[in-house]
Design a binder for these strands. Structure first.
Lengths: 256, 256
DNA sequence: TTGGGCAAAATGGTCCTACCATTTGCGCCG
DNA sequence: CGGCGCAAATGGTAGGACCATTTTGCCCAA
């Protein structure tokens, strides 16, 4: 508490001033010296603290914003705010990857099946009774929603997403959550295909509910079997719409 | 071929000029209008094509560089070059995530074991005979390297990385390669712990070689068992260095 | 007293201009 | 013929001015 106005930033320099600035700010964030939701000094202030031009500051902030660490607002009370979350903008990286390589849907399905199988095991082993009950409730709500003649596509997508994330959360492993979060954007559009096809819709919904119950009942083999069935259906469904959707958007970047 | 000097970029826009510029360039890259290794116009040229100031151009380029789409060089013949690679800066995202949440190493181990098990199955099923032979050769070279009294840490790290990526490549699924690529940075530092401990070193090397042979012999159960053993050792090794390294760097960002 | 609207201040967004640093390549000189 | 250095191209930085947006609060009117 000796110095209330700790410098926090050193005058930086080395030809790559902007990178230096970015590194210092990032370090301050990761070290916790800048808490989430906290506001950084204004550009004109930092320009003096760093002893550099405003352009360098702006480029550093732009990079950190792109990196997902900052949130920049205009107007008085504006400025750079430290972003709280972490999982964000990962999905964007995967979306970019999918766009550049236009990877076939089956590869995505395959990967997700692998993750889901492990996830089910971990969820059974570590999920609390409440979490398991909640998962079953969600799955049954999902089932009810899909049984309707006119399912609300938005709601279906949301419930499906929540189900997957709930399952990932029960595994008590942040990496799985991270990957799941990243994958959501990329494959949700394919999952929708499953729900759009009436023939698969009911079976898929019932299967989800059965899977949730198997997890709640601590029956790993049954859960694995049901998950396998889910993806078998998804593969079949995708096979049916072979070259039908030649150039579907696949993923939609939302730059909010 | 009607217009040799296709405009390629529209003059744009008010308010969010830099974002607009970034979007146009990104779109041009993803649409293939800008090929990898191709060089964009100089900042001073683009500043005219876009009808904007140079600062806006620079901020856009900075964002795209951070995004992993561009590579910027100085001097004459310098400028912005479209990056060829695909796996881009995913690893950086994960490294950031690990730093922010300081996730325990065991979570990482757990996830990678899950991925590796699937990877081995896919490699057996899809890997060509040449690829399998190559994997065995690499594993044996790795083993030889680790048997030395004074293993070259750099070389060990490189070989370990190449082994993992080779395995991922044999799965013929870009997503697995993508994830593996992402995990390398965050994980390698822990793997090194295994190789630094003499007691585990030889066993680990031999185990890698055995695993490669099991894959080459199309023996999935044996491969699975060996992989399990690898991670059992890694867990034990990590357990031994419990709170010893309280605040180790874990991952080191290299902004080359 | 209270409500609404307007003005001022803070702050990011942009443009401009000049200059510095680095890299490449060409031409000059030995 | 060859090496060395200078000039041009280009990104990197500095500083200043102005615009756009948003918040705050003041002032006037009902």
């Amino acid at each position: 508490m000796t110095t209330a106005t700790e410098p926090l930033f050193f005058p930086a320099k080395a030809g790559r001033a902007s990178e230096d600035v970015a590194l210092q700010i990032e370090a301050a964030i990761l070290a916790g010296r800048l808490a989430p939701e906290e506001r950084l000094p204004s550009e004109r202030e930092m320009q003096q603290q760093f002893g550099t031009g405003r352009g360098a500051i702006r480029e550093a902030l732009r990079a950190l914003k792109q990196k997902g660490l900052l949130d920049i607002r205009k107007g008085v009370k504006g400025g750079a705010y430290v972003r709280k979350v972490g999982m964000i903008n990962i999905g964007e990286s995967l979306a970019l990857f999918l766009k550049q390589h236009d990877v076939e849907p089956l590869a995505l399905v395959e990967f997700r099946e692998s993750v889901d199988q492990t996830l089910a095991l971990l969820a059974i082993a570590r999920g609390s009774a409440e979490a398991k009950a909640s998962l079953v409730a969600m799955a049954e709500e999902f089932e009810a929603c899909l049984r309707q003649d006119e399912p609300d596509a938005d709601r279906v997508g949301h419930l499906d997403r929540d189900l997957n994330l709930a399952l990932a959360g029960m595994a008590a492993n942040p990496i799985f959550e991270w990957v799941m979060q990243a994958l959501q954007r990329g494959f949700s559009s394919h999952d929708y295909a499953l729900y759009d096809t009436p023939r698969y819709r009911e079976r898929t919904a019932a299967n989800w509910a059965d899977t949730a119950r198997a997890i709640a009942d601590n029956d790993p083999m049954r859960a694995a079997s049901l998950i396998g069935y889910h993806y078998a259906m998804l593969r079949a469904c995708l096979a049916e719409r072979t070259v039908n959707t030649v150039n579907s958007p696949l993923v939609s970047p939302d730059d909010s």
